[in-house]
Design a protein around this nucleic acid. Structure first.
Length: 450
RNA sequence: GUGGAUGUAGUUCAGUUGGUAGAGCAUCGGAUUGUGGUUCCGAGUGUCGCGGGUUCGAGUCCCGUCAUCCACCCCA
């Protein structure tokens, strides 16, 4: 029989069991962290009508979206979680209570070439706050503080949240007489860190007709050691600029109040974000030890989330964590391996008699006590069953042979130390419980092999 | 969409100036009765990405194609 070679598409991630457990653990932490700030969970379809997802039209989205037809309906896979949120809010505006705070952790799809840290299918973990008509600036400081807390909860330390404000940039461009090229200039200065000031200047001057001295002025401003101080002298000349500086000042002040340490955030006038719906504060977060994966979390303020779907003015602010990237950073730092028990069960029960009833009863007792238990009833050799526990990193094995059953007891073996003792079911529960507690407290754990 | 590299067992790779393939790891089995992770012994697998060409003969050279990876674009 001609068989098909199994394969997984490029840009799509697939994990072996132990890593999947770790991934899920990461998601659990995110979920509880978001919930702590009063966000409600949301799930939307992975597929939407193309007209809905492409309402804005044009640009990269159109190029990167997975689009197909089924029958004569034109469908697309979501490429982010913001557009589906906009649709959702517009559709259910009368049933939702504002400010609407939701989080959504789901897969998104982009039909671009995969490479390091770039996937075609990847998880995003978004939080957004949507206001009805207006939304206080405080939210723009709270969002990055949630990121700080969340990353900290994941054990990450060396990261920096960079903050900027689109109004500042657009106001600045106006001041410099660059309104015409605002979009191009914005996208170009976003590359500063990557290609350096000389090349940026060259592009500005050669491609976008920015006068050389204007480019110099702009670049020196953007490179200022203390950006807020550098912007100060320019105030009073442009309304938008002044408003932006004010917002940025407020955000910085409140972020500190929310408990984000000084060394974990900074004003960086060069981050602009490609997406054009941002109108105010923008964020980008990089891992200091893994700059190669790029921004792991970014977002910002938008004034009109659902303009393509409704007349209702829905300003909002949100941020998106790239979980697939975040996971690779966590793995590189070994955090998930050290801190978590990735075994699928705590106890493996091994019946050794024809009658499985005593083993089943014991497994039931363990499960009722909240201990994760697996029964191994296959016709395998005893050592193979032990080896099974070992491979999966299951810390305890429990044997029920003739002797144990006669005494109404069970033999519990600690696979880490190799010690075993024959005890009653209740004693076994206590034994395993205290052992697991000790492990959670830092006692050595066995790492699973796959 | 553009540019560069690579495609050999499940996996990581080796394969000398062209003579029809090997290693580690992993997998499976064994080393006496109910004890794993260590060790020892043993076993297996490949249309050498696909198609064509040069040659007496190609994994090894040439062309095409597909796939993968890396970079650009853009982004999480």
């Amino acid at each position: 029989m001609a068989q098909i070679k199994p394969r997984t598409l490029s840009g799509f991630m697939e994990l072996l069991p132990a890593r999947q457990v770790q991934f899920d653990r990461m998601v659990d932490i995110l979920r509880s962290s978001y919930s702590l700030y009063g966000f409600t969970p949301l799930d939307t379809p992975a597929i939407e009508a193309s007209e809905v997802l492409l309402a804005k039209g044009g640009g990269e989205t159109e190029k990167q979206i997975y689009r197909f037809t089924k029958g004569d309906t034109d469908l697309s896979l979501r490429f982010d979680l913001t557009v589906p949120l906009a649709k959702y809010v517009a559709l259910h505006q009368n049933e939702l209570t504002f400010p609407f705070r939701r989080f959504q952790i789901a897969k998104v799809y982009r039909g671009e070439r995969a490479q390091k840290g770039r996937y075609r299918e990847f998880y995003q973990a978004d939080i957004d706050v949507i206001g009805d008509g207006s939304l206080d600036i405080t939210n723009e400081a709270e969002i990055p503080s949630i990121i700080y807390k969340t990353f900290t909860a994941l054990g990450l330390k060396r990261f920096k949240i960079r903050v900027n404000n689109r109004k500042v940039l657009n106001g600045l461009f106006a001041l410099l007489g660059l309104e015409e090229q605002a979009g191009d200039v914005m996208r170009t200065i976003d590359k500063l860190e990557k290609i350096g000031p000389e090349k940026v200047k060259a592009i500005l001057v050669d491609d976008f007709a920015v006068p050389a001295d204007t480019a110099d002025t702009l670049l020196s401003l953007l490179a200022a050691e203390d950006p807020m101080a550098a912007l100060e002298p320019l105030r009073g000349k442009n309304e938008l600029f002044d408003l932006g500086v004010e917002e940025l000042t407020t955000v910085v002040k409140y972020m500190a109040a929310y408990g984000v340490p000084q060394d974990h955030f900074m004003v960086d006038l060069t981050i602009a974000r490609g997406l054009d719906y941002y109108t105010g504060t923008v964020y980008e977060t990089v891992m200091l030890d893994h700059p190669e994966v790029g921004s792991i979390c970014s977002g910002g303020r938008y004034d009109n989330l659902a303009e393509y779907y409704t007349d209702k003015q829905l300003p909002g602010v949100g941020i998106s964590i790239g979980l697939t990237r975040l996971f690779s950073v966590l793995e590189a730092q070994g955090y998930l391996n050290d801190a978590l028990i990735t075994a699928p069960a705590d106890v493996l029960v091994l019946p050794m008699t024809e009658d499985l009833a005593p083993a089943i009863a014991f497994a039931t007792t363990l499960r009722e006590a909240g201990i994760r238990t697996q029964l191994h009833c296959e016709k395998k050799k005893f050592k193979q069953k032990l080896s099974y526990a070992d491979k999966l990193g299951i810390p305890y094995a429990a044997f029920l042979g003739e002797d144990e059953i006669q005494q109404g007891k069970v033999t519990v073996k600690d696979l880490t130390s190799g010690e075993q003792q024959t005890v009653t079911a209740d004693e076994a529960v206590a034994l395993v419980r205290s052992g697991l507690a000790a492990r959670a407290g830092g006692a050595p754990i066995r790492e699973p092999q796959n």
